[in-house]
Write a protein that binds this DNA or RNA. Structure first.
Length: 502
RNA sequence: GGUACCGUGGCCGAGUGGCUAGGCAGAGGUCUGCAAAACCUCCUACAGCAGUUCGAAUCUGCUCGGUACCUCCA
């Protein structure tokens, strides 16, 4: 079997993945800022890293997956009036800051559950780690790479760059940054434009504030991730993930902070997902094209022609490689919806097939060798594709090639449908592994109540009787009226009747 | 302005030198009381120009077009 290769944003190359501690992986992913509702764009990293998390576990690693909750807020515009994003909106909404934090944290967790994302091993909050952040800042000052001005502390990027390669991750040149960074007001506290805040003095109206050696204030944006990743994963850990837009300045600054404190590069593999765009533009507040997840699920947004289910969105995201941009459109989502439905119907049928009761090959079974080999090949390639930088798009392409094979077995009502029992068993087990365990897809109508099921059994049996005596009027009446109620009946080839809730 | 990246058939999207990606839509067919579904077949593209090569969507150069980051951002 091939070995796992991941694209490392730091080296800009695919590298063989070797964990620091054999059998274990430490993974840190930048989590949400809980000052508002999550939108479609936020779904991408969480789905992407959920699949990576699942796949690493499948490979046998014991993974510690840390994803933070940013509940302390940062400044809206660094250098200008430092305003805590969270406290600012809290005033508008007339909420206690922590009440709002709780509300959006709950909403975020709900959304993650909808997407069938596994919870991380540890989900630390920024406000819960003020002590660690202050400790780290003190160390950076002691090392001579930060300075205090009027109760605020800044990281000295220029000095750091003299002995370290600040800008390597994001492809930036410090000299250029020094000259081209935009002119912002109130930069006078900083020695250089490139410096970033580790701690900001809180103005009097600021609600969220903590005592520190430099007076009352709040932590800078980047320090929380450095503090929490170090605490839970160590001075050096395997994977750090997040959206590409976090490369600069967030992750670049994280490297600088952690390197000064821990004397080692903090991260071995940087993994960044690309953006979701709408009409070719990145989804973001400044573009006014944000679709919140609640709107996406309800269809209540001018851009949306209809509601899209969480699994449709998850599937939509996984059809594209995580490092490509993914363009949202109603057409694309509806295509994903239909494709997913076809996939899941075939898969759920296969899951119930009593493969283990079938006789082994050679017992009068006709095996189509060509088909058998093709299937075995398609199945075998799945690991290769995942090992090649988590290529879920290719995995899904192969799975879709297996769908007609499954449906043929179903239609012909043949035990093996030309496949050897060995291949059939492999097909069943690998489809479960990939569809459910690794890609994390699940049927959305599976959770129908037992009572509905028994009602449907009655209706279906009546309809079968009507059909047997060619009473098409009764037969059609049952089907049509159920269709109006949103339940679709399908007459299968073998005389069975299946149903799905629309 | 600086730095990256991208431009694939009606739509979405894999794919880094030669071999059908895949999904959705569309056309034809099989099956079926009808319908739906399913299955089979077809539609075979790579922004433009020039170059490297036996051979390029894939490498090089230029042109055009687009996006992202440089400020909070997934």
């Amino acid at each position: 079997m091939s070995t796992l290769k991941v694209y490392n944003s730091y080296s800009r190359e695919k590298e063989e993945f070797v964990s620091l501690v054999p059998g274990h992986v430490g993974m840190y992913v930048c989590g949400p800022t809980v000052s508002g509702e999550s939108h479609l764009g936020h779904a991408r990293p969480y789905v992407t890293f959920d699949v990576i998390y699942r796949y690493l576990m499948h490979l046998g690693y014991k993974v510690r997956y840390v994803r933070n909750i940013t509940d302390a807020g940062h400044f809206e515009e660094e250098g200008r009036e430092a305003e805590d994003k969270i406290s600012k909106k809290a005033v508008i909404e007339k909420l206690e800051p922590m009440e709002m934090v709780q509300k959006y944290t709950n909403l975020f967790h709900w959304a993650m559950q909808q997407f069938n994302c596994l919870p991380p091993s540890i989900e630390p909050t920024a406000t819960g780690h003020i002590v660690e952040q202050i400790g780290m800042i003190e160390e950076i000052i002691k090392a001579g790479f930060a300075y205090e001005v009027k109760g605020s502390v800044y990281f000295d990027v220029k000095k750091y760059a003299e002995s370290h390669d600040y800008g390597k991750l994001s492809g930036r040149i410090v000299e250029d940054l020094l000259t081209t960074t935009r002119e912002l007001e109130g930069q006078d506290e900083k020695q250089n434009k490139t410096d970033f805040a580790l701690w900001k003095a809180a103005p009097p109206q600021h609600i969220m504030r903590w005592k520190s050696p430099w007076g009352e204030g709040f932590p800078g944006w980047h320090i929380e991730c450095s503090a929490m990743s170090t605490k839970y994963l160590g001075k050096q850990f395997d994977i750090h993930g997040g959206g590409m837009d976090l490369l600069f300045p967030h992750h670049e600054s994280e490297i600088a902070q952690s390197t000064i404190c821990n004397h080692v590069a903090p991260v071995r593999y940087w993994i960044h997902n690309n953006m979701i765009t709408i009409n070719g533009r990145k989804m973001g507040k400044s573009y006014n094209n944000v679709i919140k997840l609640t709107e996406l699920f309800s269809g209540d947004h001018p851009i949306l022609e209809k509601a899209y289910s969480p699994m449709t969105v998850r599937f939509f995201i996984l059809q594209t490689h995580y490092r490509s941009t993914l363009d949202f459109s109603n057409e694309a989502l509806q295509a994903a919806e239909k494709g997913l439905k076809r996939l899941m119907e075939a898969y759920e049928w296969l899951k119930e097939l009593p493969v283990s009761q079938l006789p082994v090959s050679g017992d009068g079974q006709q095996t189509d060798n060509e088909l058998d080999e093709r299937c075995a090949k398609l199945i075998g390639e799945l690991d290769e594709f995942m090992n090649d930088d988590f290529n879920t798009a290719k995995v899904l392409a192969n799975i879709f090639e297996l769908v007609p094979v499954i449906n043929t077995i179903k239609d012909k009502n043949v035990s093996g449908g030309g496949l050897s029992v060995e291949t059939l068993k492999l097909l069943q087990s690998q489809m479960k592994l990939y569809v459910e365990d690794i890609l994390g897809l699940k049927g959305e109508t599976a959770a129908e109540g037992d009572k509905l099921k028994s009602v449907m059994d009655v209706l279906i049996s009546i309809r079968k009787e009507a059909r047997a005596r060619k009473d098409w009027a009764t037969s059609d009446k049952i089907r049509n009226q159920l269709a109006e109620a949103g339940i679709l009946l399908k007459d299968e080839k073998d005389g069975n009747i299946s149903w799905t809730v629309k």
